[in-house]
């Protein structure tokens, strides 16, 4: 059964005023347990608004959201429980840090859940280790840390709640390539060891192509397509038409095919590309 499901989801900002704007229109989708879903789309395409529905921060103007088959708005008083089960990491999450020490900031979520002292301690230490924060850093003030470290502390703050669904809104925005790699790998690792569902919003096609098994493409408040990564990048011409890019390697293969070379159209990682090229060369094909 799908862990997250939406039914005719609509969201309108400032309803009934001159500034009325539909941010999410008629979204129907199902996300299976344990999936790693990439969400891409332009700024203002409604992806951030959409993900805030999944943990009940926004209430849909119309339509329903089901978590594990249950309508999350069926009982309003239970919405906090939904937020513990669906963890959401906002863009630039380091700006939400407020505690005196790193330890206490990571413990904020677990404490709100009403966990015991020991369980909180276990989770804080386990999560800190997971995101590469050494024990010695736990007693430091989070405001002394570097940007990348702060980001990891903030992500750990949500991870420590051990949500069944982890949603991250551009977790790598504004980081250097090394910091990006680090965070993405930690997310991947978390996904693998915890067996949870991960939704990753990103602007970088390379990133989502590498990590996600399915891609949700948003365009002008609507779902443009929701399919396996390979299937989505097969439609690279359409994707470029709505103003999004495709991974560089996909573009290289598109140009090769345009030149009349008969080669695979579902390439989106360099590793797979190498295989395909070798295969092609072995079968007697020429790249000239």
């Amino acid at each position: 059964m799908a862990i997250l499901k939406t039914e005719n989801l609509n969201y309108v900002y400032s309803q009934g005023t001159p500034f009325e704007k539909t941010a999410v229109r008629n979204v129907n989708l199902e996300i299976e347990k344990g999936e790693f879903v990439g969400i891409i789309g332009h700024t203002g395409s409604g992806k951030s608004t959409l993900i805030q529905h999944f943990n009940g921060l926004l209430r849909p103007s119309s339509g329903k959201i089901y978590l594990d088959g249950k309508d999350i708005w069926a009982d309003k008083s239970q919405i906090r429980q939904v937020r513990f089960r669906v963890g959401l990491v906002f863009q630039y999450p380091e700006y939400q840090i407020f505690e005196e020490t790193v330890y206490r900031d990571i413990a904020f979520g677990p404490k709100n859940m009403g966990l015991s002292e020991q369980e909180t301690d276990r989770r804080v230490r386990a999560t800190a280790q997971r995101v590469g924060i050494p024990e010695s850093m736990l007693e430091k003030s989070p405001f002394e840390l570097s940007g990348g470290e702060k980001r990891r502390v903030a992500i750990a703050g949500v991870m420590a709640m051990e949500p069944e669904v982890l949603i991250l809104d551009e977790p790598t925005a504004g980081l250097d390539p090394k910091g990006r790699e680090l965070i993405l790998n930690q997310i991947k690792e978390y996904h693998k060891t915890m067996g949870c569902t991960v939704l990753l919003v990103s602007h970088s096609m390379e990133d989502v192509a590498r990590y996600a098994s399915r891609l949700l493409v948003m365009n002008r408040a609507e779902v443009f397509c929701f399919d396996s990564t390979a299937e989505v990048f097969k439609r690279s011409a359409e994707i470029e038409k709505i103003g999004l890019s495709v991974p560089q390697i996909t573009r290289v293969f598109n140009i090769l095919r345009e030149k009349g070379i008969d080669i695979a159209d579902d390439v989106y990682t360099v590793k797979y590309a190498k295989e395909k090229i070798l295969e092609y060369l072995k079968s007697g094909g020429k790249l000239q």
Binding site: N55, L57, R80, Y95, Q96, F108, N112, G157, M161
Partner: peptide, 16 residues
Amino acid sequence: EETDKIMSAQKARGAD
């Protein structure tokens, strides 16, 4: 806007 964002972020961490 910032206040709104921070409030959402803390709510996401279960702040009541």
